[in-house]
Nucleic acid binder design. Sequence first.
DNA 1: TATTACGTTTAGTAAATACTAAACATATAT
DNA 2: ATATATGTTTAGTATTTACTAAACGTAATA
Lengths: 174, 174
Amino acid sequence: MSNSLNQIKKNFTEGLSQISRFWGFPKGMGAIFAVLYLSPTALSLDEIVERTGLTKGAVSTEVRTLARMGLVHRSSKLGDRKDYYTAETDFYAAIRSILQERQNSEFDRAVRSVKETLTALEENWVENEEWNFVYERVKALQEFFDAIDSLAKAVIRLESLGLSNVTKILSVLK
Amino acid sequence: MSNSLNQIKKNFTEGLSQISRFWGFPKGMGAIFAVLYLSPTALSLDEIVERTGLTKGAVSTEVRTLARMGLVHRSSKLGDRKDYYTAETDFYAAIRSILQERQNSEFDRAVRSVKETLTALEENWVENEEWNFVYERVKALQEFFDAIDSLAKAVIRLESLGLSNVTKILSVLK
DNA sequence: TATTACGTTTAGTAAATACTAAACATATAT
DNA sequence: ATATATGTTTAGTATTTACTAAACGTAATA
């Protein structure tokens, strides 16, 4: 029965919605990506609305952030003023894109505040045990963040190298 | 002035709170970790309450999940029935612990649903173009998740090797 | 056995977030 | 110029999540 495929698609979409929520994104985002990912053709905004059950407004904004993350692509057909959307299928590229997105934003500001703590400690320096202790700890955290940062940058640089290769490399290390 | 150190600590705590929220954890968790991290001595639950401004209930539950993640450790002093808490300072160990925690939980269940989609497609197979298309896509996603999974497992295996070393290795690759 | 010192659980509240419905903006077609 | 088709923004609502206040459980002490 042909209905079976729709049922399967629905299950898949629900699964991706959950995964989306798990990573701290709205579940609607996962659903939108899922319907695009399973569609052989590019979909218009209204088609996405129809298949996800969300409203135009929600789809409009969420599809934009998906595009900014590089998980979907917006295109247009000649002589048709609708926008059309397709899913990115190169997930490694998408990961790079997401990491790059995160480089800026909230996170960077917060990490910077750790570095500021460090300089504040240096500038108002008082030689005593606790001051030393706090300084060492903050410094260690800052170095950790630096390491994370360079790891992220390294991953970004892996233009053509699939994540699976990285996995192989890591498994050789132990 | 000695007050300055408290001010610096407060800024630091606020920074970690934001970082915590950014990664999808309650900001209170970040605050709790921060005060423990900057304390030279182990702190009791009530001391944490005092320094974070949270209530006992909140600290009680959040300190427990921090402990489960391996980010703090619970200990007790002889002849004192309070529990005492300290921050984990080996962040690489903590990362491993968090990854391990996530192995189970929500995420795994969702990922499994993708695999289920795949078998559902195989079992109800209908030979046509769309069916093939959907199958290929779902399969590609499933392989991607597998890669992520083995990457996580590889990282977990890196007992003694610091993340900073991984960074170096990655930077050599490009 | 009653009291005290703790940690945990629970029931309710406040705050944050995702989403809806509808007004709006803009370009195209009539 | 008016109407139509489209995407966006906005204002409000519903849902979820973090947190509070207080009751509760439990073990140690008196």
